[in-house]
Design a protein around this nucleic acid. Structure first.
Lengths: 219, 219
DNA sequence: TTATGTTTCAAACATCTGTTTGATAGTGAG
DNA sequence: CTCACTATCAAACAGATGTTTGAAACATAA
């Protein structure tokens, strides 16, 4: 039982520190000392720092991708081959995030920040791991988005999908800092749910915006 | 003359490497060896690695913030106290980016990627530096956005502004990778200008989206 | 020329990094 | 108890990091 305790103590503190400072900026020594475990424990239980990072992600992404997959099953059954509105598709994704059981009390904001880091700070091994492990689920979701916006040219949707991703990941990954500001300036204590609920109309409107005029931009 | 050559050779290669791998992942030794200058040159000319990072940013942000400031002068003169449409305000910002003289041939994509890193990977010193150095200009711009969307509640605008920022920074910071995919999948060789031109309608629509229904989210 | 200030260079410095080792303690089964 | 296995620990390891040093090369002006 002692080993499980050590393992999860490491995972918890690693998660917090990674989210705070990033991966390479967080040393194993600061993790282990803060977790009150021996330095060698990380390499003993996880093998290497890289594997530790992956384990931190897996603890969130395993349940998340499973939930998302089931939710998509449910959606397709409910609409039975018919068209699914875009905002419903998007809400499915965010609902999967919100209903996901959180392994730590930090909850979502740490996970969101990690997602952001994974995308920008992604060293090669991380990108590969995420792609191999969770690629299919996200590919399935991307396809649902495609069907829900079939009037959009493929190239345009491609870019708008990434604008959407950016809006979500970026704001979520700085969520804590932004919440503090919002609280101080507007007296609004926004939870993750509120922010997500604000995000949906924004990206939905963005996805169905009029097509851009690309004339004169051929450089 | 030799010293200027050394300085800019360091800046050029540092910029490229930072954009590729991030700040802490790039060592002074890889920078100096790739730039074919002595290791000590960085500390001699810049003082420290932190200052090098700031110098890389300054080379872009100094001209940019100056241009943006002047463009805002021009706008306010043109509209002479009247309301400035939101998409015009936003275009001003992107135009400032596009017309900015690029110190290196990497051009914008490196700069955009750096901006993204600065925001997500921002160690304390970077955030402070950016705020102190370029805070006023961006504050002025934020105010223009506020006036151009005065019908929006303050809190709502606050969050949408960050959604917007996220969409821009995120997609721009992965621009090169995304361009490759877009080229391969759709045969479209999109330049920075095209992407920006696609971005404008997206964020404009998002900014003027219907207000979210926040009921039932009080957790 | 000499003298002065600046820039380059190889080498060393101190510190921090992830990882390994071998000894020690703890645990549960036979 | 004894044995085999697992987990913890302090210590050391090998390498990389940013930074400093002191001498050498260079340039510029008197």
């Amino acid at each position: 039982m002692a080993q499980l305790d050590t393992v999860s103590r490491i995972l918890d503190t690693a998660e917090t520190l990674f989210a705070e400072k990033g991966f390479s900026e967080t040393s194993l020594r600061t993790i282990t000392s803060k977790a009150k475990v021996n330095l060698a424990a990380v390499n003993y239980h996880f093998g290497s720092k890289k594997s530790l990072i992956q384990a931190v992600f897996a603890r969130y992404l395993d349940p998340f991708s499973e939930i998302l997959d089931k939710e998509m099953d449910r959606l397709e059954a409910e609409y039975a081959g018919g068209d699914i509105p875009l905002d419903v598709v998007l809400s499915t994704f965010t609902n999967a995030i919100l209903t996901m059981p959180s392994p730590t009390k930090n909850g979502l904001s740490a996970f969101m920040r990690l997602l952001g880091l994974a995308y920008t700070q992604a060293q090669g091994h991380m990108r590969r791991y995420l792609q191999e492990q969770y690629g299919p689920v996200f590919f399935r979701f991307a396809n649902m988005v495609k069907n829900a916006s079939s009037d959009l040219p493929d190239v345009e949707r491609f870019w708008r999908l990434h604008f959407m991703l950016g809006a979500a990941i970026f704001s979520m990954s700085s969520l804590e800092a932004l919440q503090d500001i919002a609280d101080k300036d507007f007296g609004e204590q926004a939870g993750v749910r509120d922010v997500v609920q604000r995000l949906i109309p924004f990206v939905t409107a963005g996805m169905s915006a009029p097509l851009p005029d690309l004339s004169g931009s051929n450089e």
